[in-house]
Every structure is written in structure tokens, then in C-alpha cells.
Computed example of a mutant assay.
Amino acid sequence: MEQIRIGNTLVDYRLLHSSRQKTTELAIDLDSGFTVRAPVNMSKEEVSANLQKKANWIITNLDKMNEVIRNETKKEFVSGEKFLYKGKRYRLKVIKVNEEIVPSLFFTHSKFIVYLPANVPEDDYPRIIQPLFIDFYHLKAEKILLQRAKKYLVYFETQPSLIKVQPLKNKWGNCSKTNQLRFNWRVVMAKMSIIDYVVVHELCHTKYKDHSKAFWNEVQKILPDYEERKEWLRINGDLLKV
């Protein structure tokens, strides 16, 4: 994944070189995100220069895409809807079976599949399926957040006394006076760079219990671009819900 800074915004994009391309071609869609196709002999520097010339188009269309995603946040939990996981959107498929089964959710790395008894009416989908998604995100968050915390613990002398995932109102993470770290399960819906920001933020609180300049300097030592990640979460955090 490549990145380009447009004003104060850091934009991720996928760069594909092709011998068929004569000029750069830009595409922004809900599933693939921002894709740039460029001639095979065009350097990354030349690609970046071309993208800067089209900065207004890029920002305008990214804003349109985000607005569509915002309008999708009220879920009906029916086949075809898409749900975020690690920054990507995956389609839901609801399958009804005749036998009396316990409702269940599976993730196949390309889509979510929910199995329901045949007699469940569509009006009951949110009541039944939403808890399945919450359980899925919670379990994945426990695994992923622990893995990411272990990666960044090398920067710290003080180890957290606890790392736990739970619902947190209006917070992505929390560090107690005794260095117990608690993380909001919803963050696992974001891309990995945002998950890492939340993890590093709370780990830095094991050293500084406030948001002083020293605290932010500590965050910046580990994540030099933390301000962009922080801003992304401020703007898009309300999309991370189910």
C-alpha cells in the first residue's frame, strides 16, 4: 500500500503498474478503495507528481465514498450488506436451513456467512445477527490487540498488568493507574494502522498518565505519523459500529 499527502490528509492507495497503461488511471470504489494504474516504466515519484495534480478530484471522490459508507451504518443485517473488519468491507450472506440450528456466524476471508433457522422472519434479523457480529469482533479484537501490544512492548520498560477487550463508552482505550489496559472491541473494524495507533497510545500511558507534550513525544517516537492516524479516528470513528 502506497501513501500520498494531500494538504493535511494522508491518503492510502494501491499502485498497479501495467504495460498496457499509457497514462495514470485513477479509480475509487467502496470495495477496493483508491487504486492507481500507471505505465510500467513510471516511477513512484512520477506517480506522486501526477496524483498531486489531481488532488481535488481525489479528495472529492474519497469524500463521496465516505458519505456512502456513513449512510450504510444503519444495518438491517440482510444479505448483500457490507461490514467492516480490519479496514475492509465484506459482504454478508444470510443462509436459512430447514433444521432447527443455533444461529451462527462465520468469516471466510471474503465474506461473512450467517446461518439461521428457516422460520426466522427478516424483521428479526437485527435482533439475532447483531449479537453474532459483536461476539465475532470481540473475539478477534482480543487476539489482534494482544498481538499488536506484544509488538510494541519492546519500546517500554513498564509492562501492562492487564490487557483486556470490552465495551467502552466514548473511548477507544483506557490505561488505569496500575497500568491495566482496556480496549474497545470496535477498533478491530479499523485498518491496522489505526489499531496500532490505539495500542501505542495506551501503552504510552503506562509511562505518562496525561496528554502532556512528553506523552505525545513518546507516541511520535514510535509512530511518526500518529497525527494523521489520530485525525482519521476522530473523523471516521463513528463508522466503526455495527
Rank of each mutant, 00 (worst) to 15 (best):
K75P: 06
K177P: 08
R37T: 15
L203P: 04
G33V: 14
E157C: 01
Y115A: 13
V68K: 07
N71Q: 13
D12F: 07
S48K: 12
P121C: 09
K230H: 02
L30P: 00
T178Q: 03
Y13C: 13
E142N: 10
L139A: 08
F215E: 00
R182L: 03
N66I: 11
T23S: 11
R127M: 13
F34S: 01
F77N: 05
I4Y: 00
M65Q: 14
T206H: 00
E218M: 06
Y115W: 10
I59E: 04
V97C: 06
P167L: 12
F183A: 05
F83M: 14
N119F: 12
P103E: 01
H138L: 13
S161E: 05
S212N: 03
V68I: 05
P131I: 13
N170I: 03
K150W: 07
Y226V: 06
L223K: 03
A55F: 04
G87N: 05
E218A: 00
N71F: 14
G173M: 07
E100G: 01
L168A: 15
E46Q: 11
E81R: 00
K207Q: 02
Y226L: 07
G173F: 03
H17E: 09
N61P: 03
I195M: 01
E99K: 15
L233H: 12
M189C: 08
V36D: 10
L146R: 15
K93I: 13
Q147A: 13
W232F: 10
H205A: 00
V40G: 06
K111L: 08
Y85P: 08
I113H: 10
A55V: 02
V78Q: 11
L16P: 07
R91A: 12
Y208C: 04
H138E: 09
Y152H: 08
P126Q: 11
F106D: 15
A55I: 10
T73G: 13
A118Q: 11
I222S: 00
L240C: 09
S193F: 14
W216M: 01
Q52E: 15
A141C: 04
L233G: 01
P121W: 12
E99P: 06
T9G: 02
L203Y: 00
N170F: 01
V165M: 08
L84N: 05
N184Q: 09
S193G: 09
A118N: 09
G33H: 12
N41R: 15
F34W: 11
D225C: 03
W57S: 06
V120N: 11
P131L: 04
E45V: 12
E218P: 01
I134Y: 13
N71V: 07
E218F: 01
F106W: 05
K53Q: 12
L10S: 15
L153Q: 12
K221V: 05
E2A: 06
I58N: 09
N174L: 02
P131Q: 12
A55W: 10
N66F: 06
N236T: 09
N217I: 06
Y115M: 14
F112I: 02
D210A: 01
L30I: 14
S19L: 05
Y137L: 10
K22W: 14
R234S: 00
V11L: 14
N217V: 02
L162N: 05
L233A: 08
Y155G: 02
P224Q: 01
Q21F: 14
F34G: 03
E76W: 07
V242Y: 14
R234T: 04
K22A: 15
S104I: 06
T108F: 08
V94Q: 02
H109A: 09
K177M: 04
Q130G: 10
